[in-house]
Design a protein around this nucleic acid. Structure first.
Length: 879
DNA sequence: CGATCCCGCCACATT
DNA sequence: AATGTGGCGGGATCG
């Protein structure tokens, strides 16, 4: 990567490139004209000619996945050389690294790294889930392919599926238009309806007996589905976009298959479809004969589709155990009731909210998207929504406020999310066999769901969260969950929030980032060892905590000391890739001025748009880094400390202790923990607000935690687009919290003895808890907006960083201070500082002035270890 | 050894 | 004819 960066960094000399390239090309391939020029050409020099191309190449190279075998390597080198002729050092460097690294890595690239799913994720990361209506994103297949470092063929696989869901549409040869998920719900709805017609019956039976059904299937299917219907489907697929060429397409089986596959899920009550069944159904539709080979092929295709859908967060793989045994299957985790949910939700409640602009009505589910710009305002809504007004007492329950519109949008997303969560929960409950990922913690992937220990425990939490989310908007159309403990609020669907549990949605970009789990490839997980370690440990703990909560207290978790992974050598970790890291700390970034971030500082903060962008970015480690750079990254911070501050690296030694130390050193670093979905929690991301008094958090086997950490679980998919955050009310032990509330909030209690002081990482529940008790309301006039949000300081910071003006931001800090104190652990003055946004970022030493901080960064970059460098680079990454 | 599914040949569609 | 698309299935990996 370093190399990569350098190359990038290095001035490009396109001019030189040409010659070089040529030579190189010749060397590699005599001429590119072989029969299939395309391939040859591409491979050897995809786009050597254009400077950009080179960049891309480099980039691709950078990404682990990319590493192709020698080919690429060769290619790159030559290119690099050519470019870098200017900077010999760099070249050499690169060369060296390349060779060595590649050598390792080359072989390294396991199949997984090249998986379609991963590729798809990268692909998706490049585009906003909810692009502004105004902006039109066109996708060049060639470009993407080169950037992602794959053959175009693979891109087709992805695009075809996306197209089936109308996330993209083909505009012209080699050109696709990105639509994002705005219409996804509608598309799904349509599919569902279509599916009902076609498969409805079947599915019904289906659930009960697959086999029987299977037989019937074929027959019925045919019967029920006359060609015409089939046709319908097809057509339907193209309806909206119908961009140009759509029609003529022949049967693009992949597209059709994809739609049908999705339909099966939507029609299925269980939302679980096994591959074999799907394959059979699909085959039948196509043909009667089910020869084995055909079946096999079908299954293969389904895998392809499933990978993409998985990347989209619509399904997840599970195993279904049946009479026969365990079968691979996929479970729909996307939105389920469109009518009610995404779209509907709004629609339903709309009454309550008179959103002027939004017509959420019928087809407008997308409005959310549509209104894109408004997103910006989201924060506004935020304000409004959560009228923290002094006391967050109730977050606004009123749907009507004008700003709600925006909120609505924002909310709508949230709602969806909530819906998803809820659904998930419900499903889980229903199917004991299937456990939600949450419950599954222990087993990441596939563990059979049978495991699921205490579903209930989980539920409460989730529910609580979800509803809470909804509440703010008032949108929650969903019926209250019975089990909701504390969530009195949700019951009505009203936004009444319990004091204890304030949930907030915010649009802060920072949150966003946190949420988005896209991580991708390399997230800088490879970060500095120490940092990683810390994070990891934190993660582990967090995970543990979760597990504990869910399961109840498990001893393992309990022991804070249990380092879980921490112990692992940094190196190892580094090697580990993103995949491994379940959690990552994310520091809220300021809305800052990331390049992407918009520019409209004036307008607001990071608007949704920005957020999205961020998300996308987030997906890219680089982006994150960039963000982080600007503001702070917890992890980085640690690192930074190392270098810049010179902390003892030793001390940094991985381990919680180390963390704690740091914490101590730095009063606050982290603010949120983000758990990546990858691991067991595939679908949910947890956010913890950190900032709190460190002491507060404790992992203890016993559940009694000194503090309960508020966490929010968000479906990863949802995350992508939503910047939701729940500020769980934190129940401080002190403050009387209803039991339910606790559970609701996720009763995660971490007692991290070790971490205690530091733990910034974890959770920063801002001491919000107390706040309730003592409302900080008026402290700042501005505060009002924020209310209960405990947004962790982070948010505040983020906001603040962006704008001090924003009331939102302002308030937090204050509250925090107070809160913190009350919160169990006494904070050091430093810790208090968090109040200042900037303070957070800074290391203790640097706290004083931001400038210094930056400076440090600069130094870092220079001095920084390769790792650091990497980060930085990434940040700079081109996008 | 079955589940996955990458890879890329090659046919068909477009330009 | 040159390219763009994408069906398809061998066979490598993974678990």
């Amino acid at each position: 990567e370093n190399i990569f960066d350098r190359s990038r960094m290095a001035p490009k000399t396109p001019i030189k490139n040409e010659p070089v390239d040529l030579s190189k090309q010749k060397g590699c391939t005599p001429e590119r004209s072989p029969i299939t020029p395309v391939k040859l050409v591409d491979r050897p020099q995809p786009d050597p000619w254009t400077p950009t191309a080179n960049l891309k190449m480099l980039v691709s190279a950078a990404s682990p996945d990319m590493r192709d075998r020698e080919k690429k390597k060769e290619l790159f080198r030559p290119i690099e050389n050519s470019e870098q002729s200017d900077t010999p050092d760099l070249l050499q460097y690169d060369m060296v690294d390349d060779s060595t690294v590649d050598e390792f890595e080359k072989q390294r690239p396991s199949r997984k790294q090249k998986s379609l799913g991963l590729l798809c994720q990268k692909f998706l990361a490049r585009y906003p889930s909810y692009p502004l209506s105004t902006e039109k994103t066109t996708i060049s297949l060639d470009e993407v392919a080169s950037i992602l470092g794959v053959e175009r063929r693979r891109i087709y696989d992805i695009v075809n599926v996306l197209e089936s869901l109308h996330l993209v549409s083909r505009v012209a040869k080699n050109q696709y238009c990105w639509h994002g998920r705005h219409n996804l719900s509608q598309t799904l709805k349509t599919l569902q309806e279509a599916g009902e017609l076609q498969y409805g019956e079947l599915m019904t039976c289906f659930q009960h007996k697959e086999q029987d059904l299977e037989y019937k299937f074929g027959e019925r299917k045919k019967e029920t589905m006359p060609d015409s219907q089939d046709k319908k489907l097809l057509d339907f697929s193209e309806p909206d976009c119908t961009s140009a060429s759509a029609n003529s397409r022949k049967d693009k089986s992949l597209r059709i298959m994809s739609q049908k596959f999705v339909m099966l899920f939507l029609v299925s009550k269980t939302k679980i479809v096994t591959l074999d069944i799907a394959a059979k159904i699909l085959i039948e539709e196509t043909q009667d004969t089910v020869d084995h080979s055909k079946f096999k092929t079908k299954v293969r295709r389904l895998y392809d589709i499933a990978n993409v859908l998985t990347s989209l967060g619509l399904i997840k793989k599970v195993h279904v155990t049946e009479e026969r045994g365990r079968k691979p299957a996929f479970k729909w985790i996307g939105p389920v009731e469109f009518p009610g949910k995404t779209d509907e939700l709004r629609g339903h409640s709309p009454a309550s909210d008179p959103l002027p602009g939004t017509q959420r009505g019928a087809r407008a589910p997308y409005q959310i998207c549509a209104s894109g710009k408004q997103r910006f305002t989201r924060h506004a809504s935020f304000n409004g929504a959560q009228p923290c007004e002094g006391t967050r007492r109730k977050v606004s329950s009123e749907p009507n406020s004008p700003r709600q519109e925006r909120q609505d949008e924002y909310c709508s997303k949230m709602v969806n999310l909530a819906a998803v969560c809820r659904q998930k929960i419900e499903e889980d409950t229903r199917n004991p066999s299937i456990i939600s990922p949450l419950s599954i913690l222990p087993v990441p992937g596939d563990s059979d769901f049978s495991v699921n220990p205490l579903p209930q425990a989980v539920f409460p939490v989730v529910q609580g969260d979800v509803p809470s989310l909804l509440l703010p908007n008032g949108i929650s159309s969903q019926p209250p969950h019975p089990s909701m403990p504390a969530a009195s609020k949700t019951e009505d669907g009203k936004p009444t929030l319990l004091p204890s549990q304030p949930f907030l949605c915010f649009p802060s970009s920072s949150l966003f980032m946190l949420c988005s789990g896209l991580q991708e490839n390399n997230l800088r997980e490879t970060l500095p060892t120490a940092g990683d370690m810390g994070n990891r440990s934190a993660e582990a703990q967090a995970a543990v905590a979760l597990a504990v909560c869910q399961k109840r207290s498990s001893r393992k978790c309990a022991s804070p000391s249990a380092p879980v992974d921490d112990e692992e050598p940094a190196a190892k970790k580094q090697t580990m890739e993103q995949s491994d890291v379940p959690l990552s700390l994310v520091v809220p970034k300021k809305p800052f001025e990331s390049p992407k971030a918009e520019s409209t500082p004036g307008s607001g903060y990071a608007s949704a748009v920005d957020l999205e962008a961020l998300q996308l970015d987030i997906a890219n480690p680089a982006a994150l880094e960039a963000a982080n750079k600007k503001s702070t990254k917890p992890v980085d911070s640690q690192e930074q400390k190392k270098w810049s501050q010179n902390k003892d690296p030793d001390e940094l030694s991985p381990g919680k202790e180390h963390i704690s130390k740091e914490n101590s050193n730095q009063p606050f670093l982290p603010h949120y923990l983000y758990v990546q979905p990858t691991a067991g929690l595939s679908n949910f991301n947890f956010l913890f607000s950190a900032n709190q008094a460190p002491g507060a958090i404790s992992l203890t086997a016993s559940q009694l935690p000194s503090l309960s950490v508020p966490c929010v679980m968000v479906p990863s998919a949802a995350l992508a687009s939503f910047p939701l955050v729940c500020s769980p009310a934190i129940t401080s032990p002190l403050s009387p919290v209803p039991d339910g509330s606790l559970s609701a909030t996720t009763s995660l209690n971490f007692s991290m003895s070790s971490l205690a002081s530091a733990t910034p990482v974890f959770i920063g529940t801002t001491a919000a808890v107390t706040p309730k008790v003592s409302p900080m309301p008026s402290v700042d006039p501005q505060q009002p907006a924020h209310p209960a949000l405990h947004l962790s300081p982070v948010l505040a910071r983020s906001c603040g960083a962006v704008k001090l003006d924003s009331p939102m931001c302002m308030g937090h800090p204050v509250t925090l201070l107070k809160l913190q104190q009350p919160s169990s652990t006494p904070l050091t003055p430093k810790s208090i500082r968090p109040a200042c946004h900037e303070a957070f970022f800074k290391t203790p030493g640097s706290l004083g002035d931001p400038v210094a901080w930056k400076k440090n960064e600069g130094n870092q970059t220079r001095n920084a270890s390769s790792v650091q460098r990497r980060l930085e680079i990434s940040s700079t990454s081109p996008d």
